[in-house]
Computed example of a mutant assay.
Amino acid sequence: MKRELGIARCGLACCLCSENEKCNGCYSDNCPDYTQCENRKCSMEKELPGCYACEMDCKRGLLNKIKPYGFTLFIKRYGIENLLDCLEENEKRGILYHRKGIIGDYDDFDDVEKLIEFIKMGKR
């Protein structure tokens, strides 16, 4: 885990991304989606560090996918450092952010509350 890369504006975990060998995270200018990311653009326009700091509960851009939406809700409830701690602990337990391509263990949910419990507990 590259904790220093943190969490993207949309809630994705740059710190665990398999692309982080060639990307320095969402807040850098070399993010592959730098210019077209709707969540980046919106949070920058609102002068927020990310969607997790917004009072709205929206599903724009990547927030229409369960993993970034769930991570964003987790941060709103428990804080970004707590999410990073849980992700780091879960990685030690063998929970994969990316198994194949960009799909991993955190994508196996259709209920956001179950995903949040999984993040906290590291098991189903």
Rank of each mutant, 00 (worst) to 15 (best):
M1G: 06
E4Y: 14
E4K: 13
L5H: 09
I7R: 05
I7H: 03
I7N: 01
C10R: 00
A13G: 09
A13E: 01
A13T: 03
C15R: 00
C15V: 01
L16M: 15
S18A: 11
E19I: 13
N20R: 15
E21P: 01
G25Q: 12
Y27M: 10
D29F: 10
N30T: 12
N30F: 14
P32S: 14
T35V: 12
Q36F: 14
N39F: 06
N39E: 13
K41E: 07
K41V: 09
C42G: 00
S43M: 11
S43L: 09
S43W: 04
S43V: 07
K46W: 08
L48P: 03
E55P: 08
E55C: 01
E55V: 05
G61C: 10
L63W: 00
N64C: 13
N64A: 08
K65L: 14
K65R: 14
I66E: 00
K67P: 00
K67N: 05
P68A: 04
P68D: 04
Y69W: 10
G70W: 00
G70V: 02
T72P: 05
T72A: 04
I75K: 05
L83F: 00
L84F: 02
D85E: 12
C86V: 02
E89S: 10
E89H: 09
E91F: 15
K92W: 04
K92V: 07
R93I: 08
I95D: 00
R99I: 08
K100T: 11
G101N: 14
G101C: 12
I103N: 07
G104T: 01
D105C: 12
D105N: 13
D107K: 02
D108R: 12
F109P: 02
F109M: 05
V112W: 02
E113S: 12
L115K: 07
E117T: 08
I119L: 10
I119Y: 06
K120N: 12
M121A: 12
M121G: 08
M121H: 09
G122P: 11
G122L: 09
K123S: 13
